[in-house]
């Protein structure tokens, strides 16, 4: 039996862009993943306030959703994004890391459906939410 969690972790850690953004895989398993994005000056989108760019939130959301798909017990292997919608609720607080949690809530032989939430330290008020569909691929 393949250790899905280990496989997913290795996969995430081998992603150059995830590395460039300093993403870390905090939790993984059974169609759930938690990935965080540390605050850094190079991801700032508004230099005046120091608020990070929405695009960086998209990148961590997309990675986290993909990880959730790969960790699902019914997923045979890799995945690619078909579509991803992100709703931006508020600006992330400068200096704080973003923690994203994704759930693969349904999976068929060809498509996986995922929801995700991104929070900073104020976990009661999400920064963004996402919903997407992903391909289900065999290695």
């Amino acid at each position: 039996m393949v250790d899905k969690a280990k496989l997913a972790r290795q996969f995430i850690e081998a992603i150059p862009h995830a590395k460039a953004l300093g993403m870390t895989l905090d939790e993984i398993g059974e169609g759930e993943a938690v990935i965080s994005l540390p605050y850094a000056p190079h991801i700032v989108g508004d230099p005046e306030s120091g608020v990070i760019h929405g695009g960086a939130v998209s990148a961590v959301m997309d990675t986290c959703c993909g990880a959730a798909v790969m960790s699902h017990p019914s997923a045979p292997g890799g995945t690619a994004t078909i579509d991803l919608r992100i709703d931006y609720m508020r600006a992330a607080t400068p200096g704080q890391k973003i923690v994203t949690r994704a759930t693969c809530y349904h999976i068929t032989r060809s498509v996986a459906f995922v929801r995700a939430t991104a929070c900073d330290e104020d976990t009661d008020r999400p920064v963004a939410t996402a919903a997407g569909s992903f391909t289900v691929e065999t290695w």
């Binding site: 695009g55 990148a59 993909g66």
Partner: peptide, 11 residues
């Protein structure tokens, strides 16, 4: 990366 594509389109 899909996130890069999303960011590029958003920018």
């Amino acid at each position: 990366h899909g996130g890069v594509t999303a960011a590029f389109l958003e920018v």
